[in-house]
Amino acid sequence: MNKSVSELEENPTPNNSPPAIGRRMLLAAFALAVALLVSFLFARYTAYRTVQAKFYGQPLVPAKEAFDFHLVDQNGKAFQLSQLRGKAVLFSFGFTHCPNVCPTTLSDLAKIYRALPERDRARVQVLFVSVDPRRDQPETMKNYVPYFDDSFIGLTGTEDQIAEAAKAYGAYYEIVHDPGQNPDSYSVNHSAFTYLISPDRKWKLLYNFDQLSDTNKVIRDIEQVLGGA
């Protein structure tokens, strides 16, 4: 602090304003920066619109590397997203005590999966990740998730593993206790999004709860992603 004050005293600036040429150059540099920023934003926007026009789901532009979560599958075995090599993955977060949103999401996913052409079905895996690990043990997931389709895999894990996976996909969940109720009969508020990951593990698209009910449009997206789009 003292030093800067003494420096100021030693090098007093006779002119407060920079010389005219300097000011003009500064202005030009500033204009250039603005132009670059605008064209950069415009390019991003155009890229987004191009991808958006191609897909029904909400695209991530540019597509993100899909976070390789470490969870526990319905058979109690360690499970990583990267195990599903060469497959497109559709997954969402939820919990088995969920009466409305989760059975609907899983029914929608079953409808989509079953309507896929057989050759595509072999290249698509549906996952359902619990955000309620206290009640959703692997056994519970096994009795719940494959009910909607035999091929679906239920995942749970430690609280930390689940928190990490949810955070990586921007998902949110929160336990809500109903006052006066049994402490075990809580509900969980959670993001009801479904994520589409491409076979090369890019997080491509997001579907909200309502979008998922349009089977044919989601299938068109899946086929594009399987085709390398």
């Binding site: 009466p99 949110y172 508020n189 959670h190 993001s191």
Partner: peptide
């Protein structure tokens, strides 16, 4: 009877229910 609540967080919709 229940209602479904929807709120936005991190650009994602959080769904819950309320008696």
């Amino acid at each position: 009877p229940m209602i479904t609540t929807r709120q936005e967080r991190n650009g994602q919709e959080i769904m819950g229910m309320e008696a």
